[in-house]
Write a protein that binds this DNA or RNA. Structure first.
Length: 353
DNA sequence: AAGCCGGGGCG
DNA sequence: CGCCCAGGCTT
């Protein structure tokens, strides 16, 4: 039996029942595909349901505020996906009569849709013959055919795309694309795949040559940078001072608090730090540490400290991104997870118990 | 070509 | 702790 038929047969027996597999609506598939970028199915599934419920059509999506979109996206990470989706929804309403494109060459023009997502939406929605190449496909092809070209190099991308399109089962591209991705996710897993029950084991290069654990090859390693962000929680009656994060850094357009970033770990008894705090909040300011947290991102290790302030003064006019928000509206704002967790524990502790 | 962008799960 | 996840955008 062919490689393609083995995969499809395996898929028909072992596939999970996932909601986006019951439709060929391009908008719905777009929702699922963008949510699932760099995201596990189990993590993305509740977000897919939430978005479809809040935005049944692309017009509903386009008419929402960006803050609403980011609030629904909160906790999922890579927030530019949400902002790009919002822009694309408005683009589709304005320039495509609200009809979501389902052909590769149109899809690839849209913000937030790259080669993978254009192939996925077009094949699943219109049946167009475009091979998907995601992390699963890289892994399956690399192991089965023994390809050690780094998957994160341009040469690797080219090579794997060429092979994937050559292998594409043209009688049913959508079925084959689903099959190879599901096979990668469930059977040919990154860690400890169960090769003894694999239908392709007899012809698998990696298994034959004991290279399952070294394929696929990926070059370079991510350098993580340490950052030390000190947040100041200013409250006034039932109001709290929040800050909208701007472009050029993490968590763009999400909300946190006014802060001072330092080069290294400091405490409030650090003279230089206290000096900086007084420069911003006045000589009379009283600072007390509330809590500390280490927050991990792909490229950054963020050491976060939360401080409560009393007797502070502040020049608001210099900081247009700052706003007072009442506590009962605070949870409507999109927040990074580390901020959301802090707020839940600090302001809404009683409601949690 | 390399860097940047989150958060979670698993060995 | 390191790696990976239905990647894409910017420089």
């Amino acid at each position: 039996m062919t490689f393609q038929n083995e995969l499809i047969n395996w898929y028909l027996v072992n596939k999970r029942d996932l909601p986006w597999r019951h439709t060929n609506d391009a908008y719905t598939i777009w929702l699922s595909e963008v949510i699932l970028q760099q995201t596990r199915v189990e993590q993305g599934l509740p977000y897919f349901n939430k978005f479809l419920e809040n935005f049944p059509t692309v017009t509903d999506f386009a008419n929402a505020t960006e803050a609403k979109v980011l609030k629904l996206w909160q906790g999922l990470g890579y927030y530019s996906r949400g902002r790009n989706m919002h822009a694309t929804a408005q683009n589709v309403v304005n320039n495509y009569r609200g009809i979501f494109p389902n052909l590769h060459d149109e899809l690839i023009k849209l913000k937030g849709i790259g080669e993978y997502t254009a192939a996925a939406i077009s094949s699943f929605s219109s049946g167009e013959a475009r091979a998907v190449v995601d992390g699963n496909v890289f892994r399956v092809l690399s192991r089965y055919y023994g390809i050690d070209t780094p998957i994160n190099s341009p040469a690797g991308k080219k090579e794997f795309y060429a092979l994937a399109n050559e292998l594409l089962y043209r009688a049913d591209p959508a079925l084959y694309n689903q099959a190879i991705m599901e096979f990668g996710a469930m059977q040919c897993k990154p860690k400890s795949p169960n090769c003894t029950i694999c239908p392709l084991v007899q012809s698998c290069y990696a298994f034959k040559n004991d290279k399952v654990n070294v394929l696929p090859v990926k070059t370079g390693k991510i350098k993580q940078k340490h950052r030390y962000i000190n947040y100041f929680v200013c409250t006034e009656n039932d109001q709290v001072l929040v800050k909208e994060r701007q472009a050029g850094d993490i968590w763009q357009h999400l909300y946190d608090f006014p802060s001072l970033e330092t080069k290294e770990s400091i405490g409030i008894n650090n003279a230089g730090f206290l000096e900086q705090v007084k420069a911003v909040f006045g000589e009379e300011v009283e600072v007390t540490l509330i809590s500390t947290k280490k927050h991990l991102l792909t490229h950054q290790i963020i050491h976060v400290q939360f401080f409560a302030l009393k007797n502070y003064i502040f020049n608001f006019k210099k900081q247009k991104e700052l706003n007072w928000v009442s506590l009962n509206k605070l949870d409507e704002l999109p927040q990074p997870k580390v901020i959301h967790d802090f707020i839940q524990g600090y302001f809404y502790k009683n409601e949690m118990e």
